[in-house]
Design a protein around this nucleic acid. Structure first.
Lengths: 210, 210
DNA sequence: CGAATTTCTTAGCATCTGGTCCAAAAATCC
DNA sequence: GGATTTTTGGACCAGATGCTAAGAAATTCG
């Protein structure tokens, strides 16, 4: 019953746990929870049925773990894209472009687990996770806006929370377009335009000097 | 084999076709294609199994019909919200608010069939339909922007296509928030703010006089 | 009324679903 | 080598799945 994570007494595993998890991610991503049969997972992950259940638990548990891992990774990438560039404008554009790049990666599935798949999993825990993740994303962008205010790149009355939410919405929109098959090139341009939009000063304010 | 749509020779129908279709819409909407079993439809639509198949075809066909009907209705509502108000700003705000209202209607399911459910139906025809519908939505908003240019409400270099796409993206974002449980009041405010954002003049241009 | 036509009801089918059981295999510890 | 521990592979299960078949019921036409 116990796990043989690294070295134990029993028979060694014939698969790599995190590798199998990545495979599972792709499977859920491409077939969307309900469309995935256990047999799909077995075939795609290279794990026997019994091993799957004893290592990852049942389907729902596995999906939750996949979702958490995915979110963690994506969150890290987003944060990097957001806080690395010194200029606010590059940061926001980079954030949106990052979303596009992830959603249009070659060899992977189009779209995004959290935008296109998870929202309609009929499960309270999944829903709560998504809420929290969305709030986290907004908070991240908001923080970056605040940094921009400190740096004098945007006026101090910039509606940081509202605009942060809008950035997330636009990112979602881009991701959905990606899933529907829009070409990466177009989407990257849209991302730039979205960044430009969301950085516009409020009505009645003069634009800041670059 | 033939249909007894209004008056014919055989036994009369015991259900109203379009009423049953509305029920089906609600069912798909709340349980998302894969989650719907034929028995759910039978129970929810008040139609016998055999009748369901002979009148509506199989599950996929029924869903497609539901989707088309839904889209038609929603498109009409959106056009009305968009072209009724004389002021451009009210039109855009109204469009977004309309989306929110539909997505948060009491007694109905939260969200939107076309935003939250259909995107992950793994079917070429459905996907094409969604693409076309999205393009149609963008075109509608774009046309309204053009009217706004004619009326002198926005400058003639206003990026109508880009902004139209962004309006649709923001509407989608609002809808997804609705599905995740955001209160209508908040969403309506967000819709106003989104309208404001998307009507901002481009950088370097002075705002137009009201 | 009887023939024709259409819909309704019940039963059933083959397949797939998520999940469990159990014995064999492969490693370590003594 | 033998006991112990863990993973593996396959058989298996009860229930749900989408869909079809066959006959009874309800209506119109002659």
């Amino acid at each position: 019953m116990l796990r043989n994570s690294s070295r134990g007494r029993g028979r060694p595993r014939s698969f790599d746990e995190s590798e199998a998890l990545d495979k599972a991610t792709q499977i859920f991503w491409s077939k969307s929870y309900d469309g995935v049969a256990i047999d799909d997972l077995i075939a795609g992950m290279g794990v026997g049925r019994q091993s799957l259940y004893s290592v990852f638990g049942d389907k729902r548990t596995l999906f939750l773990r996949v979702l958490r891992t995915y979110a963690e990774r994506k969150g890290a990438g987003a944060a990097k894209a957001l806080f690395t560039p010194p200029a606010l404008r590059d940061a926001i554009a980079g954030f949106l472009k990052h979303a596009v790049e992830v959603a249009t990666e070659e060899g992977s599935v189009r779209g995004c687990l959290m935008v296109c798949v998870a929202p309609l999993v009929h499960d309270a825990e999944v829903r709560q996770f998504l809420k929290d993740a969305a709030a986290g994303g907004v908070a991240l962008v908001e923080r970056r806006f605040c940094d921009g205010i400190s740096a004098g790149e945007i006026p101090s009355d910039f509606p940081v929370t509202t605009r942060a939410r809008q950035v997330i919405d636009l990112a979602r929109g881009l991701t959905m377009h990606a899933q529907l098959g829009a070409p990466r090139k177009t989407l990257l341009k849209d991302a730039e335009e979205a960044a430009e939009l969301v950085l516009l000063p409020r009505r009645g304010k003069a634009p800041p000097e670059a």
